[in-house]
Write a protein that binds this DNA or RNA. Structure first.
Lengths: 251, 251
DNA sequence: CGCTGAATTGACTACCCTCAACATGAGTGG
DNA sequence: CCACTCATGTTGAGGGTAGTCAATTCAGCG
């Protein structure tokens, strides 16, 4: 495999998760992000429209609701949350997005974003101008198909969240969230049993429709029952099967 | 405007909601369904790939989860629900779809539908084979754009459902559902204050994460407070402002 | 060292679920 | 026409889960 990197750039720089000098072709995430199943020359054309900017710091906004929509963003490192503000003014977390996942798809419908996206920790993103992506999709059928699938995946995942919120007990909701993050970490070849939660208890509670007190109580309860070990934001899943049963709502 | 109908077909037949002999060009729903903002000749090309079949009877399946995905469907008349079956076997209603709305978008992600779609009453649909739509989208940029927007709208609507389920009291959930159906009826030039619910209390409860008893109690409570009038499935909204306040969660 | 914000824990309360009985209406068959 | 069933919806009583309010701990930071 050819190495297109200029000789002055050291490999360890390129491999840094926040580094801007990464192309879609050599990105570690390209099996779960956009370019999957594209030909090498098409990946290159995609890469040319992707813009990489300096990392977002924790709490910084990637975009805000009602901003004019013109790009979607792939998370390259870190983690973000999407929040929508209701008419009554209170926030609602509608999702968490980890590296390889794409945000901004809500903006197409009305040419303005309906959500705001905020960094939960230092995060870098790849900006993909949508009109460029649209043009390219007309020329590369595989890309059009892939983008359709990306949006469809977002739809199915949100339907799973709806199922989660509609049915389950507080314990099942928390268990499902942990399992979800575990699975997504695993997909990125990270540990499925041991990870750091990027979001606060407040964000978790907001997302799951629970108060932070309930979230906290459930963490301690799960720990007492030897299902997980909690140390602040660090989670160790000690009994994956038990956690799955709890998520399915076997009380 | 030309009339392409064969002379033997009477106008009142064509205007029947379940009639198969309707083209996208003269469909009453074409301002909210797919063809919006397409040129007249492009509408015709779209129309040629759309298949119209005999109406579904109440309880019949349009498609089932795990069926091979090959079409999306526009609801032309009636009403359907989308349900997903969890691993534990119980159903979850993930959405209701009224005329002009499109179902099946969840199927693209994995080439199989993740939901089943069931008719709530006698309903007719327009089947749009996806590979044909995909090809056409490559040739008609407006159609590609429109289909992206359609999927995006589905995403934003589901995020609203997530917000609804995550935050609100039982009363606010029911109120929001009623307001949602009211608004969608209004968009089709039907009454916003007076309509028939196509779904059962069981479906409402399942969708909103409530028991049917709670749904029933809330209907009677709203009626006692002169916000709505309920007679079986017929709803009259007598105080729209109050209903809006309740939906926003002002307790 | 004190301040601030996040997280935990406890006591009490309220909302919604569970279980149950009853009502209503459509369809069937005598 | 009435009696019967079955499905759907309504209403009531009681209990459990999660919310509210409050106090405390802890980490980070100037």
């Amino acid at each position: 495999m050819n190495n297109f990197q200029p000789p002055l750039i050291k490999t360890q720089d390129i491999n840094c998760a926040h580094d801007k000098r990464v192309s879609c072709g050599n990105c570690r995430l390209n099996t779960i992000c956009l370019p999957i199943s594209l030909h090498i020359e098409d990946i290159d054309r995609l890469n040319q429209i992707v813009q990489r900017s300096k990392p977002l710091q924790k709490g910084e906004y990637l975009y805000r609701a009602k901003d004019r929509f013109d790009s979607v963003f792939a998370i390259r490192s870190g983690a973000v949350k999407a929040v929508s503000i209701s008419e009554t003014g209170d926030e609602q977390v509608t999702g968490f997005y980890l590296p390889g996942e794409v945000v901004g798809l809500d903006g197409l419908a009305n040419d303005t974003y309906t959500n705001s996206v905020v960094a939960l920790e230092t995060s870098s993103v790849c900006e993909i101008p949508f009109n460029r992506l649209e043009e390219l999709s007309l020329q590369i059928p595989t890309l059009q198909r892939h983008f359709f699938q990306l949006m469809s995946r977002e739809i199915t995942q949100e339907q799973q969240v709806i199922t989660l919120l509609s049915k389950s007990s507080a314990e099942a909701r928390v268990a499902s969230l942990l399992l979800g993050i575990s699975a997504r970490n695993n997909r990125r070849n990270l540990s499925a049993n041991n990870f750091i939660l990027p979001m606060s208890r407040t964000d978790i509670g907001n997302f799951l429709g629970l108060t932070i007190e309930t979230v906290s109580r459930i963490f301690t309860r799960l720990q007492k029952n030897n299902v997980i070990a909690v140390d602040k934001k660090e989670i160790v899943i000690t009994d994956m099967d038990a956690l799955s049963l709890i998520a399915k709502g076997t009380d």
